[in-house]
């Protein structure tokens, strides 16, 4: 029973990792850039939600939507203003820029007088509620996280499979040159992918808020979501979620059954093992071009 309990809270935590990893993978697939500011987008999203619900007085779900939109605009703008001008530079420079964006946004947020380095609480309607199923105690927060993640993944899957823009995003990630030849607006779609990744991060931030509170450094969770993306293969959207779930569960179990300190190291041990035994990840794509 204890084990199942741990797995459930691990899955909930894993959903958060998975959503952040989803952002890594989305941006990587579309633009071949690893965005190390993904965690900071989560933090910005959480603060946007906090602002929407405490200052604007919006109810929880509306605040979630408002935060998504606000963070999407931030993501769109980052691609357009900061990343597009350095397109074509070496991968290292681009990665450094995203790391820089992360540091700057952390710094800027603490400079806001009302925010500072304090921890803030996002008002949620279901705080503290629990469900008892059999001998299990499941908190409402965990259920909200899991259900929201499932809904979001379904929406994203539908977007990529059934809409013209979604299929075009897949197309440009598979063969960018051919996408240009087809008249697909590759640059505009890159901005759009950044916006989607930022919106997903905002959702993750708001889902995470009841568990860790909102503070300037909450984005550092991105470092743990990175292994999730690697485990999934870094090119697979379902892989990112599965990787996140694995990391979440492993972390919970390691925290409980192993000695102190293993909890934070566990995700990276899993990643090392994965890189040794299956370097392409669980769902990694490998393609050979026909000549």
């Amino acid at each position: 029973m204890q084990f199942i309990q741990l797995v459930i809270s691990g899955l909930a935590q894993g959903c958060i990792y998975g959503l952040i990893a989803l952002g890594f993978v989305l941006i990587y697939k579309a633009t071949e850039t690893v965005n190390f500011a993904q965690g900071e987008l989560l933090m910005i999203g959480a603060f946007a939600g906090l602002f929407a619900s405490t200052v604007l007085g919006l109810p929880y779900w509306l605040a979630l939507v408002a935060a998504m939109i606000a963070t999407a605009i931030v993501g769109f703008g980052l691609e357009r203003v900061v990343l597009r001008p350095i397109l074509g530079q070496s991968a290292v420079s681009i990665v450094m820029v995203t790391i820089g964006i992360g540091y700057m946004s952390r710094g800027l947020i603490t400079m806001l007088p009302v925010v500072g380095t304090d921890t803030h609480t996002l008002p949620v309607p279901f705080r503290g509620e629990v469900f008892r199923v059999g001998g299990l105690v499941i908190s409402a927060e965990h259920i909200v996280i899991i259900v929201t993640t499932i809904v979001l993944c379904a929406l994203l899957a539908a977007l990529f499979r059934y809409t013209k823009v979604g299929v075009a995003m897949q197309a440009m990630s598979q063969n960018q040159l051919a996408a240009y030849y087809m008249g697909i607006p590759v640059k505009r779609l890159s901005s759009l992918v950044w916006a989607i990744a930022a919106a997903v991060a905002a959702i993750a931030g708001i889902l995470l808020a009841p568990l860790t509170f909102i503070h300037a450094n909450m984005g550092l969770i991105g470092i743990k979501a990175f292994p999730a993306a690697v485990i999934g293969g870094f090119t697979s959207l379902p892989g990112a979620i599965v990787g996140g779930l694995i990391i979440g569960v492993v972390e919970q179990l390691a925290g409980f059954y192993l000695i102190e300190g293993f909890k934070d190291a566990a995700p990276f041990i899993v990643v090392l093992a994965m890189l040794i035994f299956k370097p392409n990840g669980l769902f990694g794509e490998r393609l050979a071009k026909k000549v």
Binding site: K164, V167, A168, Q170, A171, Q174, N175, L177, A178, A179, Y181, M182, G183, I184, E285, L287, K289, K290, V291
Partner: peptide, 26 residues
């Protein structure tokens, strides 16, 4: 003006039908 580029450059993981749809993107 549209082009069938050198080396074919199809979208390998899209279905044949979706490849055709991408040709009609504009």
């Amino acid at each position: 003006i549209s082009q069938a580029p050198e080396g074919r450059e199809v979208f390998p993981l899209l279905s044949v039908r979706n490849n055709l749809m991408m040709g009609a993107y504009t």
